[in-house]
């Protein structure tokens, strides 16, 4: 195998190897069924690249996540405020809280929309959220499970202090392995395919 630096992608095989391969290809019908030496059509190459890009974009864990305690911190902070207390019933109170947080603007808004709750739900978790805040816990690591807050069910990277990240990351070592794995795949396929005669040459099939 000789790498031609001036024209690396034409062939990794030398002329002699190519000539031998062509000779064999011409000389027999490869087990009864001839094969053509066509390249991958350009639209198909485009489709493959699109697939690889899509595969990362579409797998990030942005959907279907459970609500975390951090989501509702703003709600709970507002709960006991005089403005909220002054309102006549729970529905209006909740509406006021939601509107206020929305008006303030938060990056968590899409998740808040996906996980709406009632004033009663808030009351159930209020004490636990306040207790966790007092302990200085990482709020995004606690999942709201009905009336309970539990440590999230994820085991991410180790932190320096020996604890584990419990937030689903948008990027983790799974993706990193993927990147290397895909690169290895592409390189290997190119190496294997480049051992064939160049696609500019077509076999003459003799049946």
């Amino acid at each position: 195998m000789a790498w031609k630096f001036d024209n690396p992608l034409v062939s990794l095989a030398d002329d002699q190897q190519n000539a031998a391969a062509r000779g064999v290809w011409e000389g027999e019908s490869l087990g009864g069924i001839t094969e053509d030496n066509n390249r991958l059509p350009v639209p198909v190459v485009g489709l493959l690249i699109l697939t690889i890009v899509t595969s990362f974009l579409v797998t990030f864990p942005l959907w279907g996540q459970r609500p975390t305690a951090a989501l509702y911190e703003d709600y709970i902070a507002l709960m006991d405020s005089p403005q909220v207390q002054a309102l006549p019933d729970d529905a209006k109170r909740m509406q006021y809280i939601v509107d206020t947080v929305r008006a303030k603007g938060t990056a968590k808004q899409p998740q808040l929309d996906r996980h709406p709750l009632s004033m009663d739900d808030l009351r159930l978790i209020q004490g636990q959220v306040v207790e966790l805040q007092r302990q200085g816990a990482r709020m995004e690591e606690f999942t709201v499970l009905g009336n309970r807050l539990v440590l999230a069910n994820f085991e991410g990277n180790w932190r320096a202090d020996g604890t584990r990240e419990r937030v689903q990351p948008w990027w983790d070592k799974g993706y990193t392995i993927d990147v290397f794995y895909i690169i290895a795949f592409c390189v290997s396929v190119i190496v294997v395919v480049k051992r064939l005669p160049p696609y500019t040459w077509q076999p003459k099939h003799k049946h």
């Binding site: 697939t51 690889i52 595969s55 689903q168 983790d172 799974g174 993706y175 993927d178 895909i182």
Partner: peptide
């Protein structure tokens, strides 16, 4: 979780 992330990307690549 990393296993799911890895598998999920590979799963889309079944399209290759």
């Amino acid at each position: 979780e990393w296993l799911k992330s890895f598998a999920s990307v590979e799963g889309v690549l079944i399209l290759v």
